[in-house]
Amino acid sequence: MDGRLDAAGGDPMTPRAVAVKAGLERGWVELRSKLASPWELSGEVWPWIIAVGVMFALRDKKVPGTDFSIGLQAVPGIVGMSLIYTGLMGLALVLTTDRDDGTLLRMKAIPNGTIGYFISKVVSRAGITTAALLIILIPSALLFGDLRVNSVTAWLTLIGIILLGLLATLPIGAVIGAVFGSVQSLGLVMLPVMGLIAISGIFYPITAFPEWVQWIGQVFPVYWLGLGMRSALLPDSMAIAEIGGSWRHLQTIGVLGVWAVIGFAYAPVVLRRMARRGSGTTVKETETAAA
């Protein structure tokens, strides 16, 4: 299909592959400039530093009937929350700004520019979110000896779940930001997202909800993200509190993977459409309506 390119002696890569590569480079440049400005980065992470402080204050309180501290039990939830807020919602906010200031339209004017733009946003947002997660995880590991972050398997599981979680949720953030073109309307989206977090067992075990609520929760990636976090950070004995009494690693990978694939396929399409200006009324339709 790209015989035309070979004949032209141009880049042997397909235009889309070139756009993905350019997007990776763009994301890296943006991430570097963000990390180089501590003021901007601190704006992203201070809520989570406060959260760690609260957990520290609660370190001696026990979950009723167990030996586990409330603070310890909350760590995976806070990590999951920060991934959703800094990652998904943070990206939605960036998209809203970029749609407003013309960045999105500029990228649409470039061949495959929307693809490159999307990739770059995923890369830079993933980097910033990872930085935020480290800021939570490192002090937490020092504060709570019971966290499993001293084992290699736990770290590998954690890195895997963070990566998969980011790939599954960042496209959703991009689409939300592109569809709700203003910061004010983005506030409205926060409500259902918070509702979703509430029924996804991030802070309160999902098994306490009626079964139909559990089913809704399990459709979305937030529940699986939280489950994965708990499986990485908490002692295996705590799996007993989960649905089916298991960490369900395979299902976690499956559901998050499906969300990631759908997201990466459709987000660039939605972004391109959203960058477009409004269309005119179809003349025929209006005339029929008037008659």
């Binding site: 790209d2 141009g10 880049d11 890569m13 763009r26 200031d101 013309g102 500029r106 061949p111």
Partner: peptide, 28 residues
């Protein structure tokens, strides 16, 4: 475009280089 607020943190040369990359496969 009429817009002028986008890509404010990018340096001129980096931005032109980055946005040019997308066109390489379309050389004739």
């Amino acid at each position: 475009l009429q817009s002028w607020r986008d890509h404010g943190t990018w340096r001129v040369r980096d931005l032109l280089h980055q946005l040019g990359r997308y066109y390489t496969p379309f050389s004739t």
